[in-house]
Computed example of a mutant assay.
Amino acid sequence: MPYAVRDSMTMLRRNLKHAQRYPSMTVSVVMVPVFILLLFNSVFGKALGVGIGGVRYIDYIAPGVILMAAASGALTTAVAVCVDKTDGIVNRFRTMAISRASFLTGHVVAGTLQTLLSIAVVVGLALLLGFRPSATPVEWLAAAGLLGLLAFALTWVSAGIGLVASNVESASNLPIPLQFLPFLGSAIVPADAMPGWLRWFAQYQPFTPVIETLRGLLTGAGIGSSGLVALAWCAVLGVVGYVWAKRVFARGVAG
């Protein structure tokens, strides 16, 4: 175990240095939720805020866009893993006396840290635009833990995407549904305001309970059963992504 941890830390430092030297991917990923927050709050805010029910639109939309930042961050890991695979770095690592688990672990931890940084930027912008959360320190801690768990789970999924992608272009396109799935949830408007079939999808897709839990924690609203459902979805996504990525990587090793 210390051997694997040491190699994982080495891979983590390597990936963080890459992100520091080539920040364009991280910046582009951060700008997507930033533009969405600016667009919907400043341009469509008055129109969309009419049906929210007395809640300021910035207070309604901010938790949803913060979650979008967590989903958008998955793109960086998919591209980074695919670059290593297509450049032959993975095959070189396999010939070295290093822990095989360290390659994916380093990418996933580095990707999670980059995603948390993106989330912090979006939270800061939301506060500048007038977002006024009423969360207690404990509720802030719970919200941060939920976002960290979601980011970790989605990063494992994106690691699997990077391994199966045939090229970097595919790796950058395949995670796009994860980025925009919150649009089909309750991030922008309540699910009850949607047409019948879309309302059903919005209510039962993975991101809606996470959004509702985050919104409840930050704005002081009740979360009901959304908290348990959100944790369950994070666990499912994390386990599925971990098993998938490990199996795809193991098949490559066997090959």
Rank of each mutant, 00 (worst) to 15 (best):
E169I: 10
P2Y: 09
S172F: 00
A159D: 14
T155N: 13
P177S: 08
A47C: 00
F207N: 03
L117E: 01
R215Y: 06
L178A: 13
G88W: 09
L178C: 02
T76R: 11
S72F: 12
L116H: 04
R13A: 15
A4M: 10
S166C: 01
G45V: 03
V210M: 15
F180M: 03
T208N: 09
V239I: 13
S166R: 12
F180G: 01
G238Q: 15
A202H: 03
L228H: 09
H18C: 14
L141F: 15
A19T: 12
V29C: 12
Y3R: 10
P195A: 03
S102H: 08
A47G: 00
S42D: 12
V30A: 14
L16S: 09
T86W: 06
V55Y: 01
G185W: 02
M9C: 13
P63T: 01
P175S: 05
F183T: 08
M11K: 05
G124W: 07
I58F: 04
M1Y: 13
T219V: 04
V50A: 13
A62Q: 00
F180W: 07
L125E: 07
V5E: 02
S28R: 15
P206M: 12
T76A: 14
R94F: 12
V248A: 15
W200E: 14
V65A: 00
T155Y: 00
L174Y: 13
G216L: 09
V157L: 15
G196K: 08
M194F: 05
G130Y: 06
W233C: 14
V109Y: 03
L104V: 05
A202I: 06
T10H: 11
P33W: 05
S166D: 07
L141V: 09
